[in-house]
Design a protein around this nucleic acid. Structure first.
Lengths: 202, 202
DNA sequence: AATTTGAATTTTTAAAAGTAAAAGTCAAAT
DNA sequence: ATTTGACTTTTACTTTTAAAAATTCAAATT
């Protein structure tokens, strides 16, 4: 019964996600995940080759969820400004919800397996792709001037992600930043986006 | 003879600067600095209370040099774009030259003494002040629209500094990034500045 | 009195060794 | 094909120890 097997795999994924999101990779043990599910530890290894792969699967899952969510929300939107605001807000919403999985992983990038590192790179590319599409539509609609879309979306992404890093860099405690900080960054990102987009107007 | 004493203090400062810029704070010992100067180690402590203060003095010295250099170069410039380009180029020039002292210190901020941390904050404020002046003149000249200067200069600074961090974050080796990387960042910063400033045009 | 130093002391850092916890494996059971 | 308990291997955390570096200071020099 492959269906049952797939279900079990998903259960493990979800339980692991909850643990990882709350405690981070380092502070979550395979034994704990197994206990949450009343599975044996060895069973986790039947479905996932190792802890790193499980974490990678969770990360991938979350990133897909984010991308889907954004893509969905953008369907009904037409202007570039509105679209970008959606992207920024959704991204921040996910960063808040899955802080340890998303942002903390980025910050810890230096000591990540190449598998995870590649996932982060893919995620970055996917975000850039979304931004590029928004800008492309803006250009096609005549709302924005004709620009190098690849370059512009990269610059925009670097700027907005970077703002976050300037603030978060004093990662003294590895604790989750508070709501005020998230909100302050989001406000800055939006303001920056407004000016940036105005600077691209046809 | 206070003049002689001040000279000696300066000599120490300069020698320490060379060592710190090349090897960083951790890999520079007081004994090495003393040996470079053919002074006794104890003499360093006659002029500076401890290693941290010496490092702080060096950092302050470099930051003053940068500010002075920028302020000087801006005297003859009139347009906002040109001014911002000067600021970005000068900043990058100094970052390259004093990598360990400037950027590496920022990256290591988490484990810095409060004295050094305060210096970094001051430096950030000073940079913001310079940017704000550029924008203010642009507004006064009617080149830019009327904006909240404090907010806008902060956002600009966060964006441009942030771009740097997005790239540098994979600080795997604590080695100095190569010229190509510095140049790529500078190019992005300039492009971003161009769009940003266009977005602020009256 | 202000400078300067050699030698002594204290503090940090780094390597080694041991230990406990967690990751990962596997033969046997369902 | 799944699942597990028991077992082995790795990794992460102390503790210990030695060396290196920071810092102090009494005495010497200018």
């Amino acid at each position: 019964m492959p269906k049952n097997a797939d279900e079990k795999r998903l259960k493990i994924l979800e339980t692991a996600k909850r643990r990882f999101a709350h405690y981070g990779m380092a502070k979550t043990t395979m034994a704990e995940i197994a206990k949450d599910l009343s599975f044996s530890k060895a069973l986790l290894y039947y479905y996932f080759p190792d802890k790193n792969s499980l974490y990678a699967a969770v990360l991938e899952h979350v990133m897909e969820e984010l991308e889907e969510d954004i893509t969905n929300s953008l369907k009904s939107i037409v202007s570039v400004s509105e679209s970008i605001v959606i992207v920024l807000e959704k991204r921040m919403e996910f960063v808040k919800k899955y802080y340890y999985i998303l942002e903390y992983t980025v910050l810890m990038r230096k000591d990540l397996s190449s598998e995870l590192d590649q996932l982060l790179i893919d995620s970055f590319e996917s975000q850039k792709e979304i931004i590029r599409n928004v800008f492309r539509q803006g250009v096609e609609r005549g709302e924005l001037m004709d620009v190098d879309l690849e370059e512009i979306s990269k610059i925009f992404l670097f700027s907005s992600m970077g703002m976050r890093l300037v603030v978060v860099k004093d990662l003294k405690s590895s604790f989750i930043p508070d709501k005020e900080e998230f909100d302050a960054i989001l406000a800055m990102q939006k303001k920056m986006a407004t000016i940036f987009i105005r600077g691209l107007k046809a």
